[in-house]
Amino acid sequence: MATVFKKPHALRDVPLHYCPGCTHGIVHRLISEVIDELGIEGSTIGVSPVGCTYNNYLYFNCDMVQASHGRAPAVATGIRRALPDKTVFTYQGDGDLAAIGTAEIVHAATRGEKITTIFVNNAIYGMTSGQMAPTTLLNQVTTTTPYGRKADLHGFPIHVCEMLATLEGTAFIERVSLHDIKNINNAKKAIKKAFEVQLAGKGFSIVEILSTCPSNWGLNPLEAMKWLQENMLPVYQLGNFKGKDLEV
């Protein structure tokens, strides 16, 4: 019998520190599978954010750089401009990208920076235990919206893909989810396309990945997948927002 599924080479053989059922782990594997399939581990540099995945530099076999909160796109810009023939990706959460790092992601996108951003949206701050994120849903209870997020107090959730799609520098924008096998496979296709867009030098690429946070949502991993389907999908429409038919 042949092995048909095993840990990708680009993913280091170390246990992940994430909570049981946290879908960050799936994202790490998908990125690593794509890096393996494109054969770019030796020429890729990844940028870790601040958040639950602040030290995911421990998990990827390519060179990794840790960036201050929200600044990964700027750090990646510095790397990419210094090494035009390499591949650069940022791994960011919703607080990192859509709160403190909004200016950096918007300007990296509008500059058409040839980097790929993997944006994990789980509608909450995980690392710091459950605060409201820019993508927290209306009425969603968090440690800083204990009575539920209210628009007049806390404003509205940010739709990053739609926002960035208005910027001409962007080449590929897709929102995917991980709540079932079909969607996980779609997510991988989108991540692969995003990296291919970068390799083809076509501009900025981003994949927003709807994800779960069982611990801070106060749900077990199975309930969390269900909560994502029932609550996040209606607000965050899946699909491609840019570059669907882009030749790479």
């Binding site: 048909v4 994430y18 782990g25 799936i26 991980l178």
Partner: peptide, 12 residues
């Protein structure tokens, strides 16, 4: 595919 921790290897 759905395992977040790469616990499972599959042979066929």
């Amino acid at each position: 595919t759905i395992c977040p921790d790469c616990v499972i290897e599959v042979e066929k």
